[in-house]
Design a protein around this nucleic acid. Structure first.
Length: 284
DNA sequence: GTCCAGGAGAGGC
DNA sequence: GCCTCTCATGGA
């Protein structure tokens, strides 16, 4: 039994494997299994349809995949004279931004600093398997991302067993803050973009880059533009002719160049730089 | 074995 | 304000 969603110009595989979420596992020839919150689901794309199993996960999947939004408006908003961005969009036009549950988004990106995507993925899966609530999907048992209280009780030492290294303290302290009720991530929903940034920066281990990832992939602030090592390289090489440009100047540039949907532009540039052939650092 | 990763924070200047 | 160093780990 499954339900389906209409998803025009959508690339499920690229979207789930583009360094936003890290826990989706291939299933069968063209499916992916994972949890969104505590809902286990199988997603499978055929043409413009995405089939969701079980059917009761349909609305959760729709929200997570941000379906039903006007993606053409996003593409129209991009700077008209930007050939670099146009190339990245043409490379994978079906790539989208996800809308992830806030805590799993924050916690996952707290583990991301100075880590390769493959390793962030390994940590995310281990946290889910070892500490997360087990969610059944037919014969499969998938792990939800562990609640703050569970991580708080597990302790920093236990987290280090999962390969978090010095990031274990960041994740643990954030979990303790949330589990104690001192703050709630949902408070951020009501804040404007700037106030939300300030709020996220109050978490130890969250700097501007990770805060922007959480604003973009969790809170759905589509103008947020995370500048990581990949984006920094692309900007320097393709937008500034390989010249010596300070990181600060790059941040200033993206703020007024890419516009209201800069987060999408960023994701297209990131995905293209990281996965396309011709980039010596990327793997085929 | 070597390089480097979706960084942040502290310290020096 | 900007530059540099350290933090911990494992995939490529």
């Amino acid at each position: 039994m499954s339900a389906h969603l209409i998803a025009p110009n959508f690339d499920l595989s690229a979207t789930l494997n583009s360094g936003q979420a890290f826990h989706w596992e291939p299933h069968g020839s063209d499916g992916f299994v994972g949890c969104v919150g505590n809902q286990a689901m199988l997603l499978r794309q055929s043409g413009q349809r995405i089939h969701v199993t079980p059917p009761e996960a349909r609305e959760g999947a729709r929200r997570y995949l941000r379906l039903g939004e006007d993606h053409e408006a996003v593409l129209r908003s991009f700077p008209a004279q930007d050939a670099v961005l146009a190339e990245a969009v043409a490379y994978c036009p079906g790539l989208r931004i996800l809308r992830q549950p806030l805590w799993e988004c924050l916690a996952t990106f707290l583990t991301s600093s100075m880590k390769q995507v493959a390793h962030i993925r390994q940590i995310s899966l281990r946290l889910r398997q070892e500490l997360g609530e087990s969610c059944r999907l037919g014969d499969l048992a998938l792990g939800a991302f562990p609640e703050p209280g569970v991580i708080a009780r597990a302790g920093e030492r236990r987290l280090r067993e999962f390969g978090l290294g010095y990031r274990a303290g960041f994740v643990h302290r954030a979990a303790v803050r949330l589990a104690s009720g001192e703050v709630r991530l949902e408070e951020g929903e009501a804040l404007d973009d700037e106030a939300l940034l300030e709020f996220l920066l109050t978490f130890d281990g969250v700097g501007e880059k990770i805060a922007n990832c959480v604003r973009l992939f969790g809170y759905g602030r589509l103008a947020a533009f995370p500048v990581d090592v990949w984006i920094e390289r692309v900007l320097r090489e393709r937008y500034f002719g390989g010249g010596e440009v300070g990181r600060k100047e790059l941040v200033r540039f993206v703020a007024d160049h890419f516009g209201d949907y800069g987060g999408y532009a960023q994701q297209y540039l990131f995905h293209h730089a990281r996965t396309s052939r011709g980039n010596s650092r990327s793997r085929p």
